[in-house]
Design a protein around this nucleic acid. Structure first.
Lengths: 263, 263
DNA sequence: AAGGAAGTTCCGTTTAACGGAACGACCAGC
DNA sequence: GCTGGTCGTTCCGTTAAACGGAACTTCCTT
């Protein structure tokens, strides 16, 4: 099972940890940083833990639904329960409060609704959202998330995926039509994504809901990787796209602040 | 420190968990679902764990940077390390995104709930599941999985096990009765499994829940081995078995796509 | 100052975690 | 089919971490 790329091993030596719980968490951290299914022997190399210990730990997590096995293989992947847990963490952690403060400040300055979103399983999920005090509100993404091909944040995050990942998702997304402006052609969407990477922001000009426009800018971590999208949205009657675009410098500044609240 | 709102307590009893690690994880799950800093005594109520145990667990996480204290208070908040961990989890979901996208497309085409499942320790476990937008939903398999002898995916996966393994499981499964259609006779089940292998799909005609029908087809890896089951399920009022069976060609196509996403 | 509730520490007991070693499954080359 | 090697799984005697009742401290409240 010699894979081309070794796992990241920056982690402090997990093996010397006395608590079984922290050891287990260390294993999960390694596993989660690999962007692919991970085998037991890879984890042995990355963690220096003895084989039976690792095996026991992983079996425990599998049993509990935090991990699962790659079907048809033996490698471990992230389970449903861990995925849910992660989303809860990002929505509720202390840094979320900080991010919300930043969001609130932007909203009060530009008087339009802003939100912060990530991609989860190919759908756009809001981490947070602050409404501007206009009577005309719209409620999106109650549960499962938004289709990424027709909202500014979604297109922005698609645009910044690694090339192979982007290709695969593009090949699979249904590109459902919601308005006459929704991009439903794969080639058109692809060139739109390229354009987004170049100009550094994405727009949604009534592509999902008639009368609603959006502009999104990337939120980057300290390594410059795009990890979330910050967007302003509003009714075009009040916020025509041209006006939304004027907010971009302000959004970028907030995105930088927000980015620094992520590890 | 009596707060106005109690913590969500839906969690399965953490106290009865034998593994210290899972106990600890359960505590984190509770903590993370609260939308605010959480005190030790609140966690005592929510988890039924004894005070010193909780205190030790929390101190451990605090020491390791997974948790922190509310500045100026004693309540626990999410730490930097847990936050980073969560972000890594969400960024890891490439393959899951792909599979879910395929599932979503099928669901939007046939407008019925679909799921992807595997056998784990003799129980049927959902890998993923996408609901159709019908008001009448049913929630199955929250935690431990479904009995395989009375649902389409379960029978399908049993049917494609290697002969000795299949025999062993058949000998062990309790074949509990859930409706008057549940197959509880070992010989009958066995011939049903043989039939399933021949026709290439399995059905559940109200064998587990009255009024719910299912059809499942195999998902195969590149070697042709059955590694998972793709199933459509719905209320018979809307989805009588005959209609579900008409979806089989569509399901097969999706199963082929899904199969190619596995190693 | 007293009473109480929440948080912390102590420490003898218990039990889960540990990991070397043996075993089993799988694959490749012969 | 056999053989050597790798990876995953299980066994089981040993060890040390987790356990939790009880006592203690801190910080409110009255």
């Amino acid at each position: 099972m010699n894979r081309a790329f070794p796992l990241p091993t920056e982690t402090a030596d997990i093996a010397s940890e006395t608590s079984s719980t922290l050891k287990a968490f260390g294993v999960l951290e390694v596993l989660v940083r690999a962007r692919r299914p991970v085998t037991l022997s890879e984890l042995m190399q990355a963690t220096d833990l003895p084989k039976p210990t690792l095996h026991r730990t992983l079996a425990l997590f599998e049993e509990a639904g935090f991990l699962a096995r790659e079907p048809g293989g033996r490698a471990y992947i992230i389970g449903e329960r861990l995925s849910r847990f992660a989303l809860d963490v990002l929505r509720n952690d202390g840094a979320a409060a900080e991010r919300r403060t930043i969001l609130r400040r932007v909203v009060s300055e530009i008087t339009e609704t802003c939100n912060l979103a990530v991609l989860k399983k190919g759908a756009l999920i809001y981490l947070d959202r602050v409404e501007a005090p206009w009577p005309l509100k719209l409620h999106l993404a109650e549960g499962g998330g938004l289709p990424p091909h027709c909202c500014a944040s979604g297109k922005l995050l698609l645009a910044h995926l690694a090339a192979p990942e982007r290709q695969r998702l593009l090949g699979l997304l249904p590109l459902e039509r919601f308005t006459e402006r929704t991009i439903t052609d794969r080639a058109v969407l692809e060139s739109e994504l390229d354009r987004i990477v170049n100009v550094g922001y994405a727009v949604d000009n009534e592509e999902y809901v008639l009368g609603v426009a959006c502009v999104a800018v990337p939120v980057r971590n300290r390594h410059g990787e795009v990890i979330a999208a910050l967007a302003v949205q509003g009714a075009t009657a009040r916020l025509p796209l041209m006006r939304a675009i004027e907010f971009i410098p302000r959004l970028r500044a907030a995105a930088a602040e927000i980015g620094s609240t992520f590890g």
